Computed example of a mutant assay.
Amino acid sequence: MANYTAADVKKLRELTGAGMLDCKNALVEADGDVTKANEILRVKGLKGVAKREGRSAENGAVTSLIAADATSGVLVELKCETDFVAKSPKFLAVADQLAAHVAASKPADIEALLASEIEAGKTVQAFVDEANANLGEKIVLDRFAAYEGAFVASYMHRTMPDLPPQIGVLVELDKADADLAKGIAQHIAAFAPKYLTAEDVPAEIVESERRVAEETTRAEGKPEAAIAKIVEGRVNGFFKDATLLGQPYALDNKKSVQKVLDEAGVTLKRFTRIKVGI
């Protein structure tokens, strides 16, 4: 006879997230001791972490946490291998716990985050490895954003209705305006600007765009006297596309995002857009 009960299997599955057959085998090996079986599964699972290192983790979720007074907020991207795991309650619980830890600990960068303690004696890296072991997939935490300011808001977008949010946006304004913050964040989610202003674009990127614009203009046979003006127009077009403040506003494309902010008397301090796997 089996030296464990159906209740033991259920309890072990709840503790570990492991499959039914794996739980049954662990209970047999542990002679029905649920605690020992839990340890057996953890050891076996953690051994599999290294084997999964070479796998691709392009699915997952973005989660956010905004303070009750909206003066701070975080975005966290947690990646996994399949959409099946991405929408599982256990995976989403891990993501939420990581977001709460980021909000509480305010790490300087990803290295500091992974090295910080999320539970007594357990680093975030160990916590992620444990999730890797329990869920049986490569789990990756390599991006987050944390803001503090006068007003912080987020917008989360689902690309598929049965999946968790795949795109997350965090914005910081210099004063409270929930409706405007939501509209700007939705715009960012849809149009994916790379920079806030033209001044934020790295000089080497600008020079590359200018060089391409000049070579294209000359190849088109434009008059020499007109080249400088055409090139400048094309570079300005690049700024309009690549910078948030220069883009036509999604909810009123007759106005730029900058114009909408100016009319509201609000300054957008910064933004972060995270799309899972990109």
Rank of each mutant, 00 (worst) to 15 (best):
A213K: 02
G221Q: 02
A2D: 12
R211M: 15
F191L: 15
Q186Y: 13
T5Q: 03
E119K: 13
E224W: 08
K36P: 13
R218D: 11
A103Q: 12
L268P: 05
D69Q: 03
F127D: 00
I110V: 13
A192V: 10
E81Q: 01
K24Y: 11
Y155A: 08
V257T: 07
N132V: 06
A37E: 08
G17A: 05
E111F: 03
G233C: 04
A250S: 09
N236I: 14
A26I: 07
M20A: 12
A131T: 01
A95N: 06
K10W: 02
I205P: 08
A2P: 15
A250R: 03
L173Y: 02
V206W: 04
A112T: 04
Y155H: 13
A30S: 11
T35L: 12
G183M: 14
R143H: 07
Y4I: 05
A7W: 06
V260Y: 00
I167S: 13
D162W: 12
D262N: 10
D83L: 05
P202A: 07
A228M: 05
E224N: 09
E29A: 15
D262T: 07
F191T: 12
V231F: 08
G136L: 03
A225L: 12
A250T: 01
P202K: 00
A225G: 15
E117T: 11
A120I: 10
V276E: 08
V171N: 09
Q97F: 09
N3L: 11
A198Y: 09
D109T: 00
P202C: 02
V128I: 00
A18V: 01
N253I: 07
D174V: 10
V257Q: 00
K175P: 03
R42V: 14
A108C: 05
L163H: 14
F127G: 01
F239V: 11
V49Q: 05
K122M: 13
A250W: 00
I278F: 15
D96Q: 09
R270M: 00
L245T: 10
V231N: 02
A26T: 09
V62W: 00
D142C: 06
E58S: 15
Y147S: 03
D174W: 05
A30G: 08
L261H: 00
A242I: 12
M20H: 11
V102I: 02
R273K: 01
A145I: 09
G45C: 05
D200Q: 09
A203V: 05
